[in-house]
Design a protein around this nucleic acid. Sequence first.
RNA 1: GGCCCCCUAGCUCAGUUGGUUAGAGCAGCGGACUCAUAAUCCGUUUGUCGUAGGUUCGAGUCCUACGGGGGCUACCA
Length: 638
Amino acid sequence: MAKRFYVTTPLYYVNDLPHIGHTYSTILADILARYYRMQGYETHFLTGTDEHGQKVQQAAEKAGISPEKHCDEYSQRFRSFWDELRLTYDDFIRTTEQRHVEVVQKILMDLYKKGDIYKDRYEGLYSVAEERFITQKEYEEGNFREVKEIHEENYFFRMSAYQRDLMTYIESHKEFIQPENRRNEILGFLQQPLNDLCISRPKNRLSWGIELPFDPNYVTYVWFDALINYISAIGYKTNETLFKKWWPAVHIIGKDILTTHCVYWPTMLMAAGVSLPKTIFAHGWWMSEGQKMSKSLGNFIDIQTIREHISRTGHDGFRYFLAKEGPLFGDSDFSKERFYQTYNTDLANDFGNLVNRILTLIEKYFDGKIPTPGKLSDTEKLLKQEGETLCKNAFSLLDRFELNRLVFELLTYIRSINRYLEQKAPWKLAKTNLEETGTILYAALASLQLAAQLFEPVLPEKMHQLLTMLHGSQELTRTLTWDALKPGTLIPKTKALFPRIDLTFLEETSNKKQVKPQPNTNQQNEQEAIKYIPLEDFKKVQLKTARVLSAENVEGTKNLLKLTVEVGPETHTLVAGIAKYYNPDELVGKTIVIVANLQPVTIRGIQSMGMLLAAQDKDTLRLVTIDGDLPKSGVIIQ
RNA sequence: GGCCCCCUAGCUCAGUUGGUUAGAGCAGCGGACUCAUAAUCCGUUUGUCGUAGGUUCGAGUCCUACGGGGGCUACCA
């Protein structure tokens, strides 16, 4: 069977500004692709942009241009940045391309005919200000204005029908969702019954999308658009040979889009009768200077910041740090200090200096020509063996996505070579025994070139440069063997491979920063601020008395009661999680205290128009009532 | 509320199915060396392995409770 590797990045939303998160996913895919190519795999590396939706439509309108033009421009920002970073993607797909639209529509039609897509009434929270539906959670976070419930007809994908099969699949395929903690998360998520997925929007609200092939009044909404790129790009339904060649994929994603990729996408594929991806690997996030990245904190790592780092360390220096410290299994921190320090210690001191010292010795004692090795002693054999073991282990580490471990092992090998030189001290030996000196330098150089080959996917530019040098600028053949170098080859003299960086500029910038409050003290300030709130904040909360008119259990729940309360002239419905502590009957007639101006929420399909106050301590809960009687309800509490 | 993960040297982390004196890298300190990008090499840290119990001949490694941090999820409002 042919060895093939198909790797994808997420499709980046055109309206986003590319930052270190996008860059990490893409560089990670690039490194993997390069390693697999090196192993002789035929490799296909896909990335691209997701271009439909409300935000794009709005942004284009605002700019007074067509959405097409807007997308062209913004998509290019991603593409040209990947080119600037010299990433080796094989294909860049845009969801507005005909090749994609065609496939999306075919799949929609297939599933519609099959009965997996049906029309139903949709109820949801809609933010008029944002012009989009929001989730319950987003609503609770309270960042959206003019929220109202909307009822409209929409199309749904029968996702629930595939829940059981998906669970079985995940349980029997350990490599399907990685790392394991993400897999557990999804299995946990699937413990709850799955809802069907709303996949359409009426055109009168959203026109910038792919039209449903069976109803021209609607377009499809994110899932059936963006996710399908992974198969539309390789010819699903249009070029079956190509599709069979590449599918199934390894999807590299960030943890923020875990559910869509591990639940929505696989069920969609199941419905379409397509085998599931080989692996979905969800990496973590980059923190910045110990904090979550945010524009207001000023620690956001955007394109400009990345360029600035690269201008000092080169592309490879940047890639090295991402590979070594990247958030594969958890989150990682990108601190400037650590970044430059790692560059200096690992690349400049250990690696770059090693190259330099070997080449200087060869130049000095062998006129710059690779010496011919004599008989290898045990020390050389050991060094050789260490390199060969590394070759063997490298790829199995990659199969488990342990890139940072691999980088560490490679660096360990570089250190071994340094230690070897120290032990043998060829600069001393050269005065008495030139032949053995030659053997030593050859051994050091042989080990170095092997390490360079294994490092090449992470450090493509510098390693190419180094290997070319070691081959006397002849055409490179990478054999991944220890004794790949030809004795007698003249090595051209060059500048330092990884020049050491003077770190004084870091002190300057950090001194400036200390003037501003540090993030930590910021947090403390916030905490102190919470201890006391201004009166005006409290006045925003409208507390009122309310008389319970009726109460009943919410069907199918253990903890919820639906209360109808009289608040002055009005009657409100509330849902409260107090069924464990109160029977419905004992509540009727009681006067309680409610927060009357809380944003309504829908719980179990019932709209709750307020929150009642209660005191809870462990297993006891008592309602807040008032002392004595008031003639009426709905009294404002001051 | 439920579920999951984490808490090991100043920092970042390894520690396989429980087994002799708990490790690596970085930083710090001391030394060696001079081929080298003030580099490299060697040596160096008396760590209550979050806390308290328990199982065991024996626990960082298993169990329970608690504390702290993170994540997912819900019928918290």
